[in-house]
Nucleic acid binder design. Structure first.
Lengths: 336, 336
DNA sequence: CACTCTGACGTAAACGTTTAGATCGTACAC
DNA sequence: GTGTACGATCTAAACGTTTACGTCAGAGTG
């Protein structure tokens, strides 16, 4: 083993084994034959010195960092850790690792994070952005770093997208509620008019239109992507002159907030107001009443992101962007 | 701005501005005076070329990566994302970032991950290990990388520790239950006999001893750190000849599993069996009955980990290890 | 015996920074 | 007018790898 006080590099190993530093490199990478006897000497030197290859130097030479960044609004929303897990599922066997950062949904932070990741020369970026219209990832694209957007986006120059079928999911939630004779269906969406949340809203609007049910503007309220946001959104909906008899929430965390205020005010769920969430995080099974929700395959999404990134990194000629949408389905529980 | 097709480095910028590479570096780092006029020329060149400093090269030269690794069993347990968030809270203002990896609680994976992070020359490692007795972090210590253990560990050569007061927490849970006249108190702990879970058990045992309540061996069962583990552990406890009238779980995720089977079997909580968890994750407020639990300040722990790491990185002489324990308190809800 | 071929290994340049030290003009003091 | 000092900039080494290319001894061939 080792006592390794001083920095030990290939050079140290080479000296000890009485070979050149190139030879050490070759026994490590096996990109060239080396005689069994020298190989053994080098391996012994490595053991004795406790040598660990320096990935930084390697990255510098090979121009790859074997690192991808996952940039998300909040790691505290259980959806994103699940995505991160999916990323690791496919990255780690390849010797790549993920660096995870939160933006708190702040545009400035988001831009700074992207810039930082470009500086770090990550091999790829998975990005869940509220404001992809502003193309905050432009810096990455220019640097030739593949970017995959999380969420159902249309294919866009330079970036791929993978997410659930948000439009279909929004649509499905509405159909389900209409079948159960709800007619005033509210929607609590995100703070901005962009991103996955927007697609879910447009699915919602489309389904209403198809069913010829009038959609009232005030039935769609904006709120933060948080439990507190859900509470506030729900309160606003209940304050309406004609409150809804069903509410679709842009994600489960928000839906849980909505349930909070319904419980406080002793509004019966689903009898008085039905609630449908989105994502199917574990907590959806824990609340009472258990949350009916649109399943969003987080882990698979993470895996798909990683696969696309890997594929992009491997290609020499830029290929046209692609968008993958995972089919969603409704999981019926108690809240609707 | 930029069209930046070809790799643009300091060299490119220097040529464009008609200065040497060193000067570019100095305007970037401000470690030496440079005349305002040249500074402006350089800045213009940077803008026009869309130059982004290469962190990899910088790390190579400075021997710091501004990166710390957080190695945890599972990022799907909400406790760990909260720790990660705490890390980011203090790291990011310093320009450092966290790379998060899961070990799935597998010793081999854990060792591999640590080795990888050493190869990547991270500046520090936060490690939540099931088996720190085997000193899996030895490789990191030898490489001179500061390591902070998550959980309440005694100070140990070469590594610091920060965590909740696990012993005190276990003790508190028992006291609370004894006060409510529970006498057969079970404990669902983790798979191995080590780590934070073990300290919680020893607090439990100590409190029983203090109260002169006999502790039956079969009341402590081992299970996975997962919801399913909790289910299995609870089933085993209920199968006992004399089942417990209260159960303490090593964390909330496990407790939620325990509640699952109690609900299935229509065992009344807390009347027939009281349940106490550990961590106070958000889901504890969602289950029904809401979980009484020992609060574990995840985010503060993450922040403390980062602070210690930063401090260690700054010192030139190795200082003696330290262990920080955060006081815990019991949060009373419905399950006990 | 001169030649080529081949297997095994060494040499050295490059990747993009940082930074200690050298250089160079100019202003100032005498 | 010479010397000095100083501010502004440059030179070049170093960080630890990878890899194209060169070298060299010995085996094989005619």
């Amino acid at each position: 083993m080792s006592q390794a006080r001083q920095r030990v590099s290939m050079r140290t190993v080479a000296e000890r084994a009485g070979v050149s530093i190139a030879t050490v490199s070759y026994v490590l990478s096996a990109r060239r034959e080396v005689a069994p006897s020298t190989r053994r000497r080098v391996e012994r030197a490595i053991d004795e010195l406790g040598y660990v290859p320096n990935q930084v130097a390697r990255s510098m030479r090979t121009q790859r960092t074997d690192t991808v960044a996952l940039i998300v609004p909040s790691i505290l929303n259980p959806f994103y850790p699940a995505v991160a897990r999916g990323l690791q599922d496919v990255l780690e066997p390849q010797g790549s690792y993920g660096i995870v950062v939160c933006t708190d949904g702040d545009p400035g932070t988001e831009r700074r994070m992207i810039e930082q990741m470009v500086a770090r020369r990550v091999d790829g970026i998975g990005l869940s952005s509220y404001l992809h219209r502003g193309r905050p990832f432009e810096a990455a694209v220019e640097a030739g770093i593949p970017v995959v957007l999380l969420g159902s986006h249309a294919p866009e120059p330079g970036v791929d997208a993978v997410g659930p079928d948000d439009v279909g999911g929004g649509r499905r939630a509405v159909q389900y509620l209409l079948e159960r004779d709800r007619r005033r269906i509210g929607f609590i969406t995100g703070p901005q008019g962009e991103g996955p949340a927007a697609s879910r809203v447009s699915g919602y609007l489309a389904a209403l239109r198809d069913a010829a049910v009038p959609a009232a503007d005030d039935l769609v309220v904006r709120a933060d992507f948080s439990r507190e946001g859900g509470r506030e959104g729900m309160r606003r909906l209940l304050d309406l002159a004609a409150p809804p008899d069903a509410v679709i929430c842009t994600n489960d965390v928000v839906a849980i907030g909505a349930l909070d205020v319904l419980r406080e005010l002793s509004v019966r769920v689903p009898q008085d107001v039905a609630v449908v969430g989105f994502d199917d995080i574990e907590a959806a099974t824990l609340v009472s009443p258990a949350l009916t929700t649109i399943a969003n395959p987080a882990r698979q999404i993470g895996q798909a992101v990683a696969r696309i990134l890997l594929q992009r990194m491997a290609e020499d000629e830029p290929q046209p962007p692609q968008a993958i949408a995972f089919g969603t389905h409704l999981i019926q529980r108690e809240s609707a």
